[in-house]
Computed example of a mutant assay.
Amino acid sequence: MMPKFQAVTGGVLRAVDRTTDTLALTGLAAMVVVVSWQVFGRFVLSDSPPWAPETALVLLPWLGLLGVAIGVREHAHIGVTFVADRLPRRARTAVRWLTPALFLVFGIYLVVQGWQLTLLTMNSTLPATGLPTAVQYAPMPVAGVLVCVYSALQLLNVETGRGALATPEDGEEGEEESEARDDR
C-alpha cells in the first residue's frame, strides 16, 4: 500500500473505528442497564417503566448493525471464513476478492433502503419515549456507509482489522510489526 495514502487515511479511519467501537460499547452498556432496570422494576418493584422495552428495541438494531460493520472491518463473519477455508487455493483467492465486493453491494443496499425507510418514518413517533420512529431505522444507512467504506478499502488491499492502522504512539503494533510477526 502507498505510504502517502496510508498517512492520509490512517487518522480518519482510526477516528471512525474508535467512534464505531465506542458507540457499540456504549449502546451495549445502555442496553444492559435498561433491561436490568426493566427486570428489577417488574419483579422487585412490581412496576416496570413503560419506556424500558421501547428503549431496548431502539438500541437493538443499533447494536446489531454496528456489529455488522465491525464484523466486516475485522473479517469476523464466521460463515465467510467457514466456506473460504475449505476451498482450493485459487478459489480462496477469488473469494478474498469477491467477499468485500459482495459486502460493498450489501452496504449500498443498506444505505439506499435504510435511508428511504428512515425518511418514511421521520414523521411518526414512538409511543413511550416520544422519539421519532426513524431512530429505529437510522442504523441501516449508518452501518451501510461503514460497510461500504471498509469493503472499498479491502478491495484496495488496505487492511482494516484492529490495529492495522495503529501508530507506535497508540501503543498498538503497526503494520510492519504485524507482518514481521506473521512471517515467523
Rank of each mutant, 00 (worst) to 15 (best):
M2C: 06
M2R: 12
F5I: 12
F5V: 12
Q6P: 00
V8A: 13
T9W: 14
R14K: 05
T19R: 13
T22N: 08
L23C: 13
L28K: 01
V35R: 01
W37Q: 05
Q38I: 01
F40P: 01
F43P: 00
S46Y: 10
P49Y: 04
T55Y: 04
V58W: 01
V68P: 00
I70D: 08
G71L: 05
V72P: 00
V72C: 05
V72Y: 02
R73K: 15
H75S: 11
V83G: 05
D85N: 12
D85A: 11
R86D: 01
R89P: 00
R90Y: 02
A91V: 09
A94N: 09
W97Q: 01
W97F: 13
P100Q: 08
F103T: 02
L104G: 07
F106K: 05
G107A: 10
Y109C: 07
V111D: 10
V111I: 15
V111N: 06
Q113H: 13
Q113N: 13
Q113G: 10
G114E: 03
G114A: 07
G114D: 08
W115K: 01
L120V: 05
S124V: 12
T125R: 06
L126H: 03
P127S: 07
A128Y: 00
T129P: 13
Y137H: 13
A143I: 02
A143T: 01
G144N: 05
L146C: 14
V147M: 03
V147C: 02
A152H: 08
Q154W: 14
L156E: 07
L156Y: 09
E159L: 10
E159M: 09
G161K: 11
R162G: 05
A166C: 07
T167K: 10
T167L: 12
E169S: 11
E169V: 11
E173W: 07
S178P: 06
E179T: 13
R181N: 06
